[in-house]
């Protein structure tokens, strides 16, 4: 029972981290209809910048916003200088460019910070929280609080503000949104800023949680998050979050607890194939 609870709590944390990465991908797909594979490289970059600033300053309170800012700049630069000029071509053209960016950024990280695994020895000033027979470690508490906070902020912006209304309108019909006075190129940049900052937070949390930061840490998330936005329903942020949390829990419980003899990373794709066969619009997608 204790083991089950512990695994469940870990599974929720993994799912929350997937949700942070995937929601940014879903936002970008929603507005530009581009599979932003390089989003996973932004996530790895976020972990590196966060680690670097943490080593320099010893403070996560400084490291997190700096990493968010750097990742936003890189994300918006990718949008302006790579995706925007390629939008007039068929969707596989920006997709190929995005894959090239993923590999390119990985290689830059390898050149800049060596190919080895770095530890992320962050001190989190929170006491462990006892929860019945088990104890929540400080990093678990942090993952829970940060994810709930970020998702609540995304929900608030999207449903309760004029900016959110403009973002949702732009993702449904970019030209008509423009004809109503919405500066759509600004909305697209804001979308990349939000998505990239969220990925930066995810990178830092993963770095601390597994105490590992390495150049190809984005490789598995790159394709796993693609499977997740298909499962959730392309472009649906709530769908992406739901699919992520379900996947995190199933991976941990089925593989880690029930010891089903499957590679952990296969589950996302089994789920994707199942969804494509029985519910091609995704869990919360339309049509």
């Amino acid at each position: 029972m204790e083991l089950f609870l512990e695994q469940l709590l870990n599974g929720i944390a993994i799912g929350f981290i997937y949700a942070l990465i995937t929601s940014g991908l879903a936002l970008v797909y929603g507005i530009l209809r581009i599979l932003h594979v390089a989003h996973a490289a932004i996530y790895a970059l976020g972990a590196y910048v966060g680690l670097g600033v943490y080593i320099l300053t010893g403070s996560l309170i400084v490291a997190i916003p700096v990493s968010m800012a750097v990742c936003s700049l890189v994300g918006v630069a990718i949008e302006k200088f790579v995706y925007f000029p390629l939008l007039k071509y068929p969707p596989y053209v920006p997709l190929i460019a995005s894959i090239a960016l993923l590999i390119g950024i990985e290689e830059i990280l390898r050149l800049a910070a060596s190919p080895y695994i770095h530890a992320f020895p962050a001190e989190i000033p929170i006491d462990p929280v006892p929860l019945g027979p088990v104890t929540l470690s400080p990093i678990l508490v942090t993952v829970y609080l940060v994810t709930v906070g970020v998702l609540a902020a995304l929900w608030f912006i999207s449903t309760r503000t004029e900016l959110g209304l403009a973002m949702r309108a732009s993702s449904q019909d970019l030209h008509i949104a423009g004809s109503l006075g919405i500066n759509t190129s600004r909305i697209i940049s804001i979308t990349f800023t939000i998505g990239s900052s969220t990925a930066a937070i995810a990178g830092i949390l993963v770095g601390i949680y597994f105490n590992q930061v390495y150049p190809t840490m984005g490789a598995v998330p790159a394709y796993k998050t693609l499977a997740l936005i298909v499962v959730g329903g392309l472009g649906s942020v709530p769908g992406a979050v739901l699919a992520s949390v379900l996947l995190g829990i199933s991976e941990t419980l089925l593989i880690g607890y029930a010891h089903i003899p499957l590679p952990r990373d296969a589950l996302a794709f089994i789920a994707m194939i199942a969804v494509l066969m029985w519910r091609p619009q995704g869990l919360l997608g339309r049509r």
Partner: peptide
């Protein structure tokens, strides 16, 4: 919400 998009920036 559709009607409110017509008032974007004008509220």
């Amino acid at each position: 919400e559709n009607i409110m998009t017509g008032l974007y920036g004008l509220r």
